[in-house]
Simulated assay, not measured.
Amino acid sequence: MASLACANNEKYNQMKEAAAYLLARTDIRPRIGIVCGSGLSNLAEEFTDAESFQYRRIPHFPISTVDGHAGRLVFGYIENIPLLAMKGCFHHFEGYSLPICTFPIRVMKLVGIEILIITNASGGVNEKYNIGDIMLLRDHINFPGLCGKSPLNGANFTDFGPRFPPMANTYDKELREIAVRVADEMKINKFFHVGIYACVGGPSCETIAEQQMMRLFEIDAVGMSMVHEILVARHCKMRVLAFSIITTESILEYDLEDTINHEEILAVSENREKVCSEFVRKCIHEIEYPPESTDNVGSLIIKK
């Protein structure tokens, strides 16, 4: 037990060192962090007064190996709202441990992030979903976690949160209400959904039997990322808003050709880039400046 505690202290010191490196090099102090997954890859390019830090220069940071992931932390502003964007995330299937995959989330907490907005590409399981649709997460099923793989395994980081963090309200109700309202105002309801996401280990895609099982479980979309970061964010008491871009449809017949490939996924995400960026910008604005007519939503989202 002593060795576990010692290792945990070392990891915590590494996180503090990474956060101190960033705070010493920028005066921007955001409370909203964005993991720019699929659909948001260029959002950070819209920041004003941006200050960018390559992962490889930040102490103890991992480096992404997935195509389309830039590998930079970007501080900046949208409409005078300070933000921190993470361009490029880390996956267990790349060979990283789950604590390493989620290391940046704890660093974000240490630099002051209170609200996390996170996106990814996922496969549609719900038969009503089409390629290019957007799904806001209402809940998730974490298959790796159910098998004992969690970024929270090991000695607990008590400075961040409790040993057994509650997950009943993982996806913040007030933030979801804002997102639904923004989608309605943007008139994107025809391809906007609220659903349940399943996380799998990857990097292989799901078999037909696995997809059939997920439909029986009333899962709406499936992917290989995001949930690990969300678990750590909630352990750190961050509030979470998450959505997926549906980039593939289920293949449920054995005689159909399996043609899923990463290039097609990137292409679908790029096609939704403009809409997703506008969607997130509007959500951020309402988080920081909640309308007076929605006091029940804004009461928990007052700018500190």
Rank of each mutant, 00 (worst) to 15 (best):
A20D: 12
C6M: 08
P82Y: 06
V35R: 02
I141R: 05
E46F: 10
N9Y: 08
E206V: 02
F160L: 11
F192A: 03
A70E: 09
G145N: 11
P203H: 11
E257G: 08
F279G: 03
R176F: 09
P151M: 03
A50C: 10
V227Q: 02
L175Q: 02
E114K: 15
L231R: 10
G112E: 10
H140E: 03
G33P: 03
P290H: 07
M213Q: 01
E46G: 07
N271L: 13
H285G: 05
S277P: 03
R25Q: 15
M135N: 03
F164V: 13
D172T: 15
N296D: 15
I188F: 13
A179Y: 00
P62N: 04
S277I: 13
L266S: 08
T207I: 06
I118K: 00
A20K: 12
S269V: 01
F53W: 06
E253P: 07
E10R: 12
E270Q: 15
F93W: 15
E206A: 04
I28Q: 09
L216H: 10
S250D: 11
A121R: 01
D67I: 06
C147W: 07
E127G: 03
T248E: 11
I78C: 04
R281T: 11
C101Y: 12
D27C: 04
Y129D: 00
R176P: 05
L4R: 13
I284V: 15
P151V: 01
E51Q: 12
L252I: 09
F157D: 13
Q54Y: 07
N142I: 01
V194C: 09
A24G: 11
H193W: 14
I81Q: 00
E17P: 01
E278L: 11
P162D: 11
N189V: 06
Y77H: 10
K304S: 12
G124A: 02
S277T: 13
A209K: 03
G88M: 02
P203E: 09
A2V: 14
N120A: 01
L73E: 00
Y197T: 03
A7V: 05
N130H: 14
A267M: 11
R272Q: 13
S299E: 08
N296H: 14
V268F: 09
V297A: 09
R29N: 11
V66W: 10
A18H: 09
I251T: 05
N126S: 08
G88I: 00
N189E: 15
L116R: 01
